[in-house]
């Protein structure tokens, strides 16, 4: 009896300790974004004067200033980012599922070799071929177009691996056999019968693909140079290289908020799927 009571209090103590650490870590994670949110609502002069966590009243003014800014085209950047991220995500998810499906369903000679190849290249960074990539798109006159940022998304090895893992857990081969007996063609089977089954995997990979493209700074910086083509990360880099002291800080915070909060909102809406999806594309022990 006594022993049990002791175990109970120590468990309570441990639990309290856990909460303290978790709350502290959450505060550290959220603090920069809270500051960002608060400072986007404040007037330049107030931001320069003192630190506070109380929101100001200049949010609309800051947003109008960002929209009216004729040198730093944040809205144009937002649109460009949206176009590139949406197109590349759709292509990457669809063709990755198709590639994984080929390896999962069909029996053919190069099947194993193809999968081994995809696993091997999965963790090799794109940066190591950046030089050849730049030379190639320059030769093809593709600089300052979105094509070199969108089309390569068709070959996304990590996404293929994720899809393959998902298919192994939830796509029985019998479905394909059954639809063949019903006279469905191979493409029809994939698009109309298999794709709906893969919806949860599509959802997870769409979020990951979209954020990866939205946040990508390295490749667009090699491809896009004209102001009207720049994506958001390039404008962020521009902000950093400009003379910092002459900036309206309220506007600066609002610009950063423009690039961060769209993803945060999508994440908060879909966080359950995302957190579940993280472990599926990796080794679990």
């Amino acid at each position: 009896m006594k022993k049990k009571a002791n175990g109970g209090t120590s468990l309570h103590l441990r639990r309290a300790g856990c909460y303290v650490v978790l709350v502290l870590l959450s505060v550290v994670c959220l603090f920069p974004f809270l500051m960002l949110l608060v400072n986007s609502t404040r007037h330049h002069v107030d931001i320069q004067r003192a630190f506070t966590l109380i929101p100001g009243t200049a949010l609309l003014r800051n947003i109008r200033n960002v929209l009216d800014n004729e040198t730093i085209l944040i809205v144009r950047g937002l649109l460009n980012s949206l176009i590139v991220a949406t197109c590349s995500t759709v292509l990457s998810v669809y063709f990755s599922a198709m590639t994984a499906y080929a390896i999962h369903i069909y029996e053919f000679k190069l099947r194993k070799a193809a999968f081994v190849f995809i696993l091997l290249i999965m963790t090799i960074p794109t940066q190591v071929s950046a030089l050849g990539f730049v030379k190639l798109i320059t030769a093809l006159h593709m600089k300052d177009t979105f094509i070199p940022l969108i089309i390569p998304a068709i070959a996304a090895p990590a996404c293929v691996f994720f899809m393959k893992q998902y298919m192994e857990s939830s796509l029985p081969r019998e479905i394909v056999e059954a639809s063949r007996i019903d006279g469905s063609g191979e493409f029809h089977t994939f698009n109309c019968i298999i794709a709906p089954i893969l919806k949860p995997a599509f959802a997870v990979q769409m979020i990951f693909g979209f954020t990866a493209s939205w946040n990508n700074y390295f490749s667009p910086s090699l491809v896009l140079t004209k102001a009207e083509n720049k994506t958001l990360p390039l404008w962020i880099a521009y902000l950093r290289s400009a003379d910092f002291t002459k900036f309206d800080m309220g506007q600066l915070y609002t610009m950063i908020a423009f690039s961060i909060f769209p993803v945060v909102i999508v994440y908060l809406l879909l966080s359950k799927f995302i957190v579940q999806g993280v472990a599926l594309g990796s080794v679990k022990g």
Partner: peptide
């Protein structure tokens, strides 16, 4: 049916060869 395996994989390998493998090899060359 095995033919379909190659068809379904084709876009991945075409794009990978053109935008990644090719540039990687030319990087070696440069």
């Amino acid at each position: 049916y095995s033919k379909w395996g190659y068809i379904f994989m084709l876009p991945f390998f075409l794009v990978y060869s053109f935008f990644s493998l090719g540039p990687l090899l030319s990087t070696f060359y440069y």
